[in-house]
């Protein structure tokens, strides 16, 4: 851990307002993006954002630098605050369940060919298909493909194992392929 981060953590331990503001400058946007991609509504995201950092300031003593970086640790709190909010809200949006997808019948090559296709039509289809995926899976896919996080960090954030995250990513890709096919059939 570098010296700046050590000083920052030391300041947070003493509840220093300067250290807290520094933390917000460094990681605020990252946390807000993590929250809003799951919660989508801005008012809800703002409330959860504040809850996350109140929790970060209050529990900074429990941060273990050996387990993960400070940003990953904060991301973890943000992820679970968002999940808790969604569970309380009892999201009524319909998402594609694992039970309706024939994962074994979908070939990896078929999935690769579809998701690797960068033409505008396919990208729009993928974007539409993402809305039918549960928020937790959307977050995992986004962390891996957009934030370029490692599977190990994603496993820490989601309190899972690397193998479970890898399997989750594989199944989510197949689910996207299934939804894209369904959307294409509906469009015809």
């Amino acid at each position: 851990m570098d010296k700046e981060t050590e000083e920052l953590i030391a300041g947070l331990m003493t509840q220093s307002p300067q250290a807290q503001q520094q933390l917000l400058r460094l990681y605020g946007r990252m946390v807000f993006a993590q929250i809003v991609r799951m919660v989508t509504r801005q008012e809800d995201a703002e409330e959860i954002y504040q809850d996350v950092f109140v929790k970060v300031f209050g529990n900074i003593a429990s941060y273990d630098e050996g387990e993960a970086s400070l940003s990953t640790w904060i991301n973890r709190i943000a992820y679970y605050e968002s999940i808790s909010f969604l569970r309380k809200r009892k999201d009524r949006l319909m998402y594609v369940d694992d039970r309706v997808v024939n994962f074994d019948g979908i070939l990896e090559q078929q999935v690769d060919d579809t998701l690797d296709n960068g033409d505008e039509k396919t990208v729009l289809l993928i974007e539409r298909a993402l809305k039918f995926i549960p928020p937790s899976e959307q977050a995992i896919v986004t962390m891996f493909y957009f934030d370029d996080m490692s599977i190990k960090d994603i496993a820490y954030i989601t309190e899972s194992t690397s193998a479970a995250v890898a399997q989750r990513l594989s199944r989510t890709r197949k689910k996207l392929y299934h939804v894209i096919n369904s959307l294409q059939n509906d469009d015809r």
Binding site: G28, R29, F32, A33, V36, R37, T40, Q42, A45, E46, Y49, D112, T114, L115, D116, N117, G118, D119, T122, V123, L124, I126, E127, L130, V141, T142, Y145, F146, R173, L176
Partner: peptide, 21 residues
């Protein structure tokens, strides 16, 4: 560089999300 289509879709989606006040 795999799943270029998926990466583009995610980037486009992130742009459409509300910004932090």
């Amino acid at each position: 560089n795999r799943d270029k289509g998926l990466r583009k879709a995610l980037a486009h989606r992130e742009q459409q999300l509300p910004e932090m006040p």
